[in-house]
Design a protein around this nucleic acid. Structure first.
Lengths: 104, 104
DNA sequence: CCGACACATAAGCACACACTTATGCGATTC
DNA sequence: GAATCGCATAAGTGTGTGCTTATGTGTCGG
């Protein structure tokens, strides 16, 4: 059950922060450590978890490993969310506005 | 950070199953146990976690407590997801269609 | 080649979490 | 009003998780 791996991956605040940082632009593991107080092995382990959850994917470049957001994970979350669209409230107007912005 | 509570709540497969079952119709805690192999205290604790995450809300009815999906939690997930719309793949068109349907 | 570098992996440890059994509490029934 | 029911809470226990230090692997520069 991959969706569970996704939620488990995002359940950790540090991993959430890593993902958010990565969403602002792909970068390598060392660059990701900037601004986040974390050791190199810890970062490597977190990235491994995010990778298994398909939230992040790697791209080897020499001795560097460039990480970027993997759309697959986001798509899985969207798919999960869509299952419960019957319960989406009017308050989701914010999301609708965002989607409208996206359209143009 | 409430979003973290949401992801943490959904990180557990049992809670995921409870939420899914609840999405098919609101019911009380005892009814929720049917089909899920779980003790009464465990169910109570899981519901507490889901409640704190705003994924579920309760409605006291005499000595029964009726549980139902809380749209707030879903809205928060949708809001989180919307932040990363730049990475949504074309595959998420389905989501946009759903939102458009919701409009009318 | 040989050192430095970027990153992954191994092993150990402290803590969080999901479960258990036992008990408490309010509402209902008789 | 005593027993029962629906549910919550307390306390204890085993397992998972995130961190650490130490080490391994592959790549680059001199």
């Amino acid at each position: 059950m991959i969706e569970n791996d996704i939620f488990k991956a995002l359940a950790d605040p540090t991993r959430c922060a890593i993902f958010e940082k990565l969403a602002s632009g792909s970068m390598n593991a060392s660059a990701l450590r900037q601004g986040i107080e974390i050791s190199q092995p810890a970062m490597s382990q977190h990235l491994s978890v995010l990778r298994n959850a398909k939230l992040v994917r790697e791209e080897r470049q020499g001795r560097f490993v460039n990480y970027e957001v993997d759309p697959d994970g986001l798509a899985l979350i969207a798919g999960w969310l869509a299952k419960y669209r019957a319960y989406w409230p009017a308050r989701i107007d914010a999301l609708k506005v965002l989607l409208r912005d996206m359209d143009q």
